[in-house]
Design a protein around this nucleic acid. Sequence first.
DNA 1: GCACCTCGAGTTCC
DNA 2: CTCGAGGTGC
Length: 796
Amino acid sequence: MKKASAETAARAEFLRCELAEHSHRYHVLDEPTIPDADYDRLLRELEAIEAAHPELIAPDSPTQRVGARPSGAFAEVRHEVPMLSLANAFTGEEVAEFVRRIRDRLDLHADASAMQFSVEPKFDGLAITLRYENGLFVRGATRGDGESGEDVTPNLRTIKAIPLRLRGTNVPEVLEVRGEVYMPRAAFEKYNEVARASDGKTKPMVNPRNGAAGSLRQLDPRITAQRPLAFYAYAIGAVDFGWNSDGALPTTHSRMLARLRDWGLPVSTLVETASGAEGCLDYYRRIGEQRDALPFDIDGVVYKVDVLAVQRELGFVGRTPRWAIAHKFPAQEQTTTVEDIIINIGRTGAATPAAKLKPVFVGGVTVTNATLHNIDQVARLDVRIGDTVIVRRAGDVIPEVAGVVIAQRPAGTQPWRMPERCPVCGSQIEREEGEAIARCMGGLSCAAQRIQAVFHFASRRAMDINGLGERLIEGLCDFGFVASVADLYRLTLVDLIEMKRLSDERDGTTPETVKGGKIATKWAENLIEAIDRSRRTTLARFLYALGIQHVGESTAKVLAAWFGDIGLVRTMPWPILKAVPDIGFEVARAIDHFFAQPGNQRVVDELLAHGVIIADAHRPIMKLSTALTPSRVLADMDIPRVTGKRSEQFAANAESLAAIARTSPKTWRAAGVPADTIEALQEFIATPDGHALFARCDDAMRLIREGSPKDGGETAGPLDGKIFVLTGTLTSMSRDEAKETLEALGAKAAGSVSKKTDVVVAGESAGSKLDKARELGIEVWDEARLLEFLARHPRL
DNA sequence: GCACCTCGAGTTCC
DNA sequence: CTCGAGGTGC
């Protein structure tokens, strides 16, 4: 063996110090400063060094003992049988090696049963031991360093999953049960929800394991009792049947777990037996698939040789058994540092803080950005530039900053504050009272909002301009080729190439060339073509593309269906818009406000002038015209005291709002309207705004009446009014296509299943929506049923 | 006025 | 996908 270099020796010493420190923090202070994955990595590095250079093994090396001394707050308990720690495997190869080592060691007399394993999930909680004497729970302790831990009996007694007395017969005189205290995910979420609502009085927990550890180490068991902890048993320690010698223990680990279950101890239902390395790896894969759906956190699986006699024969290396190994899942948590906290300006001006991270590999991808959502979230976490943070990428795809490692905060950091001015345009950033989000007030004069507006306009569900991405839009805006979405339809090939040249020049990038040294221009041709194609569109897409606040895809569809014409929508006063179902005060006002701005009207004019064609324009539907009575519109104006009933009195026999305005108060008094209500209406009409609103509403109502078909014109599709929900993957068409087709037949496609849903179309691997549909007894179609229906009802 | 349901908007990586 | 907030029915 090669002699260790001074460098290697120094590295080993460094690792020992580092590990001792983290271990102390973890076991004694309950304040983990690095995720387990990092700890494991350091430990494995040290193990590797020590394996190569045994002379470097120091008596105080963490590889020679596990954990640190318990803190003084709880009484120390010596474990009669030491609590084990397991070796870790991270790859299938390491598991195969583990199995091979066992086979080699047992070699001559190894029969098939020696290769049987009890396989179990590895709960991410806190290992404890419970002592039962004559069936009575007498003492419980944490694992501590494996030799002795802390007496947390009063706290453990509060955990309902832990039986205070064993059930059944043949209970040993002394029984020590090993298991894991954990916090179910749902309970963890609920706890944090409450904590977050408490305005900082209760701190949220970083993760369920931390929550379990913290809860168990409460000095006051009443606090522990309020924490929703649970427990699973997975092994036994000391056992003594005393004189009752006919109660011999089972001969395999799996049967022992069954026995523990008989005694009333909770044992996970996920425990199985597996045979050989393949069996273990198959279990690993299956549990891995379920991992995100489990009600508790696990960080891997454990394989244990099932036959206890074989376990005894294999014995230990140091404190880790040769007969068991923990096979860990790839980390879904990592630490990294916050290089910067920037704010992104969205289409609506929303200023959302985001952490720029030193790249880390977590959950299968490299993460460099993580949203911090809003000011409250930053304050809650107290994330600062320079901080070391724990990044998590769990079942959901989007990475989040789970917490800050306060211990590693560099000196001189400042709490982060939302800047007062927009970093892009310098406008004021304001937060509406009671709102969660701060907004840049710059509107379209803010370059960021302009770019986002154009991006939204071009997006697939809006005008669907293929190939117009954020980078290109940035260039077009920065060099003045595009100031509003209408300018897109003015662009020429020359403009695009010139823009590209300017941005290449600015960024110092060399232009891409094709064969013959010519500058690549195909993209520009394609883009011009895509822009041209987008000219022909539908009213719903057009309205959605404009990016009116609160008008998303479905509101745009509603507007398009009811008014049918852009000329109408762009002039409607809000009380008229409000008459449409699903459009309330806020949305109606937002639409009215959008079109009240001359700049926006100009953009619409220019779009139409540049050849944008709304192909599905139609007359307003009759239902709209019938819904729009003067009394209805008056009631929707929210004039103080003028309620639905009063507005009917005002509007009795009146042809229009103007007629109402002309009517003398005497007439109403005669009809029994209270004087103060009449006064309120008169006052409203007297204001310039009120007067103008009356006139606009009258005009709008006239326009709609004149535009509406006289006959019953509208054709009802075969699925009129039916609410569909699509879920899972369809093989013959995309979900969007299916949605469009169903809508063309008159159906409405909703996002989630509820009582109102008529049909759920379930494709391949449908998930929770299908379950919910079954639960509510809603009609479910598979793809074949859908296709059959569509074949019988061709699109009109 | 409150509870429930939708819809809108923002987000990450490849 | 998830949160926040708007719309509507009770």
